[in-house]
Structures are given as C-alpha cells and as structure tokens.
C-alpha cells in the first residue's frame, strides 16, 4: 500500500481526484447556499489564494512586503483587459493576470530585494502606491472612473479548486529543496549563503510565485465584482492580506487558511454592529495580536500535534485494554 502511494502516477491521479472532488462538492454547496453566504465563501477563497502567495514571501522567506495589492491590481486589470478588450476566455484571462503580475514581481524584485527589512517594506509600499496612481491615470484602465463591463465569470467551484491547487502546491514547495532554501533565508541570510544558497535567486522565486498568486486572485476578484477601480487596491488592501498571514501564523499554511476565513468573515459577521463595525475590527486585530502574538497557529506544528494526539489516543486505548 505504501509503495503504491509512492508511485508518481498514483499520486498524480490522487491529485486530480482531490481537485475533482473539490469542484463537485463546492458545486453542490453552491446550489444550496444562499447567494450572500456564497459570496463570502468566494471572497474567502480569493483572499486565501492571495494570502498564500504573501505567506510565501513574508512567512516563509521572511521578506516583508507591504505592496501585495499592487500585484493583485495588475492581475485584475490585465485579466479584465484580456477578457473584455481581446475576448480571451475567462480562465485564460486568469492565467494572463497571474503571469503579468509574476513578470512585474520579477522586474520589481531584482532591484528592491537588495534592500532588507523595513527598507524593503517601504519600497514595496511605495511601488504599490505608484502602481495605483498609474492605473488612475491610464486610458486603458479608464482611470479613476473604473473599469466597467467585466463578465461575472468567477464561480465558487472555480475559486475553491484554484485555492486547493494553491494549497497543495505550496505544501509541496515548502517540503522541497527550494522551500527549505527560502526558510533558511528567513532564519539567517548569512548562514544561508555560507551553505551555498543563492539568496537573491530564491527571494526572487518567492516574490515571483507570490505575485503570481496575487495576480490570479486579482483576476478572480475582477471577474467577481465585474467592476474595478484603482481605489480597490490601495494600501488597506495590502494590509488586509498581510493581516491574514500574520494573524493566521507566519509561515503556516493551515494558519493562513484559518486567517483567511476569520478575517474575511469577521467584517460580515460584525455587520450588525453597523457603524461600530470597523472600530471593533481594529480592536479585534489588536487583541488577537496581544494574546496570540505569533498568530492563531503560530508556533504550532500541526503534523506533530496531530501525531501526538494520535499517540495519546493509542496509549489510552492500550491502557483500557489492559
């Protein structure tokens, strides 16, 4: 059995099964869920895809980026232009959105990743502001008025399937030579280069993949709201995504999933508070950080925790049998 599971083809088929199942289940859920809840679910998925990308940059590789919304906006506009102006099919548009964002990630990454820590943070923030102002002044994006008439092609199953693909690929990446190199850079750059890790290369890889995810998320976002404008992608959007990553637990994929659910749903759950909603949201961020400074799942090794729980039940059973 174990040998069979090690077979590449079997694994690949399993991977496809998981995707098929996800699509099927989410499709079924989509039929029963009221549209309002479905919309929240959809945004959870989109935020998750983008947050997983940022988690790779900030959580895994340790490079603080405050400009993730820029890549999101690039993906959103690129895909919208592709589908509306050039009649590219929807999924092609999503791919284009991801690729264009990825390209920008690489181009921006080369000069800025020489910077460290807060200098990098402010450079990415500045880049995002420049992108936003640029979109406000471009003809093809229809400037500040906003880009209208995008098809609402994004569906719940599509978002969830892409989210699941992203999760699986991220888990694989983290357990590979590349992923370990990225983790090492987060932990100690000098030690990393002493063991032969080309820190610039891996930082750019992380940046490119992260930007790709943001671009895909942006494309899905554009084809959900059918209307985008530069103010959708301001600094607060970058902050939203970063909060998901930090709140979930930096570098933790399950944490990012939980963060995406909690922080996307929170403003909706808090809606009855009406005018006090954002105030409570702000206080909530502070409180969570005070009580869980490393995030909801920060410092929790899920695999180890599960194993320990498993061992405990086993021991209990053994005790009972005696």
């Amino acid at each position: 059995m174990k040998k069979l599971l090690d077979n590449w083809l079997v694994q690949f088929l399993l991977f496809l099964c998981v995707l098929g199942l996800t699509a099927f289940i989410t499709d079924a859920i989509g039929d029963v869920l009221p549209p309002y809840l479905l919309m929240i679910g959809l945004f959870i998925g989109i935020n998750l895809i983008m947050a997983l990308g940022l988690n790779l940059i900030t959580g895994v590789t340790g490079q603080l980026s405050l400009g993730h919304a820029a890549f999101m906006s690039i993906g959103a506009y690129a895909s919208a232009i592709a589908t509306v102006n050039y009649h590219v099919p929807f999924l092609g548009g999503v791919l284009i959105g991801g690729l264009v964002a990825c390209l920008f990630g690489i181009v921006i990454g080369f000069p800025t990743l020489r910077l460290t820590g807060d200098y990098l943070a402010i450079a990415t923030l500045g880049f995002a502001e420049i992108v936003r102002v640029q979109f406000t002044n471009m003809k093809i994006t229809n400037g500040a008025i906003g880009f209208l008439g995008i098809q609402g092609s994004t569906t719940f199953p599509i978002v969830m399937t892409i989210a699941v693909i992203t999760i699986i690929l991220m888990v694989w990446l983290e357990n590979s030579r590349n992923g370990r190199a990225m983790l090492a850079i987060r932990e100690d750059e000098i030690a990393s280069s002493a063991v032969g890790i080309n820190t610039t290369l891996y930082k750019i890889q992380a940046f490119a993949i992260g930007a790709f995810c943001a671009g895909v998320g942006g494309a899905l976002f554009a084809h959900t709201t059918t209307f985008i404008q530069p103010t959708d992608f301001g600094f607060m959007k970058s902050v939203d995504i970063l909060s998901i990553v930090v709140l979930g637990g930096l570098g933790s994929i399950p944490g990012t999933v939980i963060g995406a659910i909690v922080l996307t749903a929170a403003p909706e759950i808090l809606r009855p508070l009406a005018n006090y909603r954002m105030m409570v949201y702000g206080v909530l961020l502070v409180i969570i950080m005070i009580f869980r400074p490393y995030g909801l799942l920060g410092g929790v090794n899920l695999r180890k925790a599960v194993r320990r729980a498993f061992m405990l039940t086993k021991k209990k059973q053994a005790g009972r049998e005696e």
Binding site: S176, R177, R180, A181, L183, V195, Q205, I209
Partner: peptide, 20 residues
C-alpha cells in the same frame, strides 16, 4: 538538509511535479 543545498539539483519544476 539545508547544509546539503549545494549538492542538490532540484528546482521549482521538480518541487511542483514531484517526479521520481
């Protein structure tokens, strides 16, 4: 394992495909 980084060859493609 990270210490053996320079002896490995796998890149992004290998990470995402997990070939034998």
């Amino acid at each position: 394992k990270i210490g053996a980084h320079c002896r490995g060859k796998a890149g992004l493609l290998q990470a995402f495909t997990r070939l034998p």
